[in-house]
Design a binder for these strands. Structure first.
Length: 568
RNA sequence: UGUCCGAUGGUGUAAUUGGUAACACGUCUGACUCUGGAUCAGAAGACUCAAGGUUCGAGCCCUUGUCGGACAACCA
């Protein structure tokens, strides 16, 4: 980083959370510690929205010399699985963040949480309720109408203690009892209407096994976990805003006034145009096979983006660009695409590939001759050097690079026209050969031997330069062309009688057989390249010795495509 | 008819004790180019939700309203 960009970095305006932290630091709060946490529930794969939160939480810790914990919020055994724990750890690491030895689980705190509950019962501020879920719900009231107090609300402390102990001991049926906080059934905030703290569930927990049959709810676990871990700034998304009074209420019960306590701050979750972010809906796409798993390159999951060819750097750059605020937002996918182009342009090696091949024969080129052309590996990186590309009489070029009846703005190959074959010769289209259905089979050209790249005569101006492959020296590859998963900007806003699945893009995946340079010998999964004039591609992990599979991450910006779009 | 939160170009985010709207993406020109890429130069685009008020001065403060979002799992 040079001086000016460093300056830019330090003078960059603060987001509202940074402003709060700096103010806290100024006032010497929390012994000037900054300690955050990323608290996923292991019930699904992480997506780009989580990446925003990860970059925020770990980024804040980094920026202020603090720490960030990874904490699994695993208080509901019915939904949580180790598979998800593993994928989450992999994804956070891949994004470039390290929680060191601070890998925590809310379930590690079950015993402490139980003791906190006892404390609150002893204060007369919690009670065991015998109502069913339906009854509790029916008595909760509505946002505008107060709820009714439970008939069990005034049990004695001794009785509550005894009942709660027996709940833990497994004496009661699932759903028959809960432990509830005694707050205020007429509170305008629904979450303060005697919320449930513990429920009975005879499920096997992915970590504690069958040790427990009562589990704390999110509200009774989260703030206390923050407290146990000595978190200073507990950053979460906006939907938890209404939970904050409850978060503070529970902490009031277990902390001394004026002593350390964590604080919750909420920011707006990320929404991306042409995609969905709800875990539930993503799970639906996976389960109902609309996509090929959580890591399908069309998914906004971290694993999907990784397989698509996104880099951690590009995602961190993206997270930085979108900012952090409290208003609802929909980020243009174009910004995500810009982020990966920005990164890969500097780093990706250039290669030639032909996705929709058509044969081009240079009639006046000697039969059997093979020349080796110098091709630059990356014009943005002088260190990257050159490679040799085999050139011969029979080539493949892109079908789109030829038009029989070309509009004036089409600069590429047309009958009687000339075009530069990159790193090779200028060729002229003499005539075309079609099959009986009128499809072009072969484009016959002549070449000018004086125009080979680097020769004195080679700087003759032609309107366009196209990419090519020597037919005899190319390698077959399966190429997967991805497009946005949905056809509308906000699939969640479905019209009457439709749901988000009605807006799935039928053309989100196109598989074609194309060719790549024969230099593709020992590539490995997720290696990234720019195919000249086409876009950025990466090697799909399904690639094996007999089959090379390439995923298109994103196209290059395409001025011609834009002109075409306007004309149609 | 409740409580809480929010409202700044097409999109997102800024504007540090009130001083006259900035940056990024996108869009559009042009230059350059053996990638219609990249790069470079430039342009258009916001009377800051509305109406009042305080003030010499308001995107920032106050009042009222409008619109949008969240909240009625023993989910997180």
């Amino acid at each position: 980083m040079n001086d000016t960009s460093k300056e830019k970095e330090s003078s960059k305006s603060l987001n509202f959370i940074q402003a709060i932290i700096e103010e806290d630091l100024r006032q010497g709060k929390n012994e000037k510690r900054v300690h955050t946490r990323f608290p996923p529930e292991p019930n699904g794969y992480l997506h780009i929205g989580h990446a925003k939160s990860i970059c925020l939480n770990f980024g804040l810790a980094q920026q202020y010399g603090g720490k960030c914990n990874l904490r699994f919020d695993d208080t509901n055994p019915t939904k949580e699985e180790v598979e998800y724990v593993d994928s989450i750890k992999e994804d956070v690491h891949w994004l470039g963040f390290d929680w060191e030895d601070r890998e925590y689980y809310a379930s590690d705190y079950f015993e402490i949480l139980y003791d906190y509950a006892i404390t609150i019962i002893n204060k007369g501020k919690a009670f065991v309720c015998d109502m069913s879920a339906e009854e509790i719900s029916a008595n909760r009231g509505t946002p505008t109408r107060p709820g009714k107090e439970s008939p069990y609300r005034d049990r004695s402390i001794e009785e509550n203690l005894d009942l709660f102990r027996r709940m833990r001991a497994g004496e009661f049926k699932e759903g028959s009892h809960t432990l509830r906080a005694k707050i205020d059934m007429s509170s305008p905030n629904m979450h303060m209407r005697d919320p449930v703290m513990y429920r009975i569930m005879f499920d096997h927990h992915h970590r504690t096994g069958d040790k427990w049959c009562i589990y704390p709810t999110y509200d009774f676990a989260h703030g206390q976990s923050d407290y146990i871990e000595r978190i200073t700034h507990s950053v979460c998304t906006l939907e938890f805003e209404v939970h904050r009074p409850l978060y503070d209420w529970f902490l009031d019960q277990i902390t001394e006034p004026g002593s350390y306590r964590p604080h919750q701050y909420e920011f707006a979750r990320l929404n991306l145009s042409y995609t969905i972010m709800s875990k539930r809906k993503l799970l639906e796409l996976v389960k109902e096979k609309y996509v090929n798993g959580w890591d399908d390159p069309r998914m906004p999951t971290i694993s999907g983006l990784r397989r698509r060819g996104y880099t951690p750097e590009s995602i961190r750059y993206f997270a930085d660009k979108i900012g952090v605020a409290k208003r609802d937002n929909v980020i243009d996918v174009a910004l995500l695409e810009h982020s990966i182009r920005e990164d890969l342009n500097k780093r990706a090696l250039r290669r030639m590939a032909v996705i929709r091949p058509v044969k081009l024969v240079i009639d006046n080129y000697p039969d059997g001759l093979v020349e080796y052309m110098d091709a630059t590996n990356n014009p943005e990186d002088p260190e990257s050097g050159v490679r040799k590309m085999s050139f011969s009489k029979e080539l493949y070029i892109e079908r789109d690079d030829f038009m029989e009846e070309a509009p004036p703005k089409f600069f590429r190959l047309k009958p009687g026209g000339e075009v530069r074959l990159k790193y090779a010769y200028i060729v002229k289209c003499e005539y075309i050969e079609k099959d009986k259905d009128g499809n072009i089979e072969v484009i016959h050209c002549s070449y000018d031997p004086e125009t080979r790249s680097g020769m004195p005569q080679s700087n003759r101006k032609v309107k366009a330069t196209i990419h090519w492959l020597s037919a005899a020296h190319s390698k077959l590859a399966e190429i997967r062309l991805f497009d946005r998963l949905f056809t509308v900007e906000i699939p969640d806003e479905a019209e009457e009688g439709k749901d988000f699945k009605d807006y799935l893009n039928p053309d989100s995946l196109e598989v074609v057989q194309g060719f790549v340079e024969d230099s593709f010998q020992d590539v490995k999964a997720l290696d990234k390249f720019q195919f000249e004039r086409l876009g950025y591609f990466c090697v799909d992990p399904d690639t094996d010795a007999n089959k090379l599979i390439l995923n298109r991450t994103v196209t290059l910006k395409d001025a011609w495509a834009k002109i075409e779009r306007k004309q149609s």
